[in-house]
Structures are given as C-alpha cells and as structure tokens.
Amino acid sequence: MKIVIQRVSEAKVEVENKTVGEISNGLLLLIGLDEEDTKGDAEWLVKKILDLRIFSDEAGKMNLSIQDISGEILCISQFTLISDYKKGNRPSFIKAAKPELALDLFNYFKTEIAKSDLKIESGIFAADMKVSLINDGPVTLVFDSKTKN
C-alpha cells in the first residue's frame, strides 16, 4: 500500500459535480493498493498515520498528531500510485490490486481509521473524482507499507 499524505487546511472531492466528501483542518490521504497488499499493511499504515506528528504545537514545532488536534481525514482511492514507469513512456498499472481486492482493502482501511473517532470522509471508489485541496505548509509525505521493516 502506498499513501500520499497531505496536511490540509481544507479538501473536498466531487463526483459528477456533487461534493461527496469534504474536510477542514486535517489530512488528505491518496491511497494506492498493490496486488500483494493485506489487512496487515492497512493496519500498519493506519497506526502510523494516526500517530504521525506533523501538526504544529504552541511553539510552532511539528509535534502533534491528527488525533491531538481532533483533525479530519479525507480518503481517496488512487490506483495510479501503483504504477511502473521504468519501461517506455506510458505507465503500467499491472501491479495494482484488482478492483474487488482493492475495494475490500480500501473499505477495511477506512473502517480501521474510523475507529479513531475522527471525522472520516471519502471519495467514491473507481469513480472519476475531482479533488481540490489547500495544502498546509506544504506538508506532503509518502508512506509505503513495503518499507515498514
């Protein structure tokens, strides 16, 4: 699993010109699912994200987690994160999880992160989505569950 984490002051996702998810102060998560990903990958990433200290404390230091600030999370599935671009000029998505597996893992990830009792919003899996955000900082990180060891 690969996740692009963006600290945002606001973000929203639209499908067919209708807002289907919207947050203020928090994290936008772009989630790519690999054919080899498991629930264990999702669980590890949820813990890392919830404990990640990238919000400013009173002294202006990145020392607070999303839980510390009672922030909000917007989850967006994005299979293009699982691309192979080594050969040629057209990316290959052959290693991306098949839709059935990806949907199950995406929903599992959302269920696990929702246990935090934070506000969790989401795009629509496999839909043509328009995502807009104001990146705060900017702070953008990339996590890959394959590098957890």
Rank of each mutant, 00 (worst) to 15 (best):
Q6W: 11
R7Y: 04
V8K: 13
S9A: 10
S9L: 10
K12D: 13
K12E: 13
V13Y: 07
E14Y: 10
E16N: 15
E16R: 15
V20G: 12
I23P: 10
L27H: 12
L28I: 14
L30R: 06
G32S: 11
L33T: 04
D34V: 14
E35M: 14
E35R: 12
D37N: 07
D41K: 10
D41P: 07
W44C: 12
K47W: 01
K47V: 07
R53M: 03
S56C: 11
E58F: 05
E58Q: 08
A59K: 08
K61G: 01
K61N: 08
D68W: 00
I69V: 14
I69R: 03
I69N: 02
G71I: 01
F79H: 05
L81E: 04
L81H: 07
I82G: 04
Y85G: 03
K86S: 10
K86F: 06
K86Q: 08
K87G: 02
N89W: 13
N89G: 12
R90P: 02
P91I: 01
P91D: 02
P91E: 00
P91M: 04
S92V: 06
F93P: 06
I94S: 10
K95F: 13
A96P: 05
L103K: 15
Y108N: 04
F109V: 03
T111Q: 13
S116R: 01
S116C: 02
D117N: 15
K119E: 08
K119C: 11
K119N: 14
K119A: 08
S122F: 00
K130F: 09
V131D: 04
I134S: 07
I134E: 09
N135G: 05
D136G: 02
P138K: 06
P138Q: 08
V139H: 07
T140E: 01
S145N: 03
N149L: 05
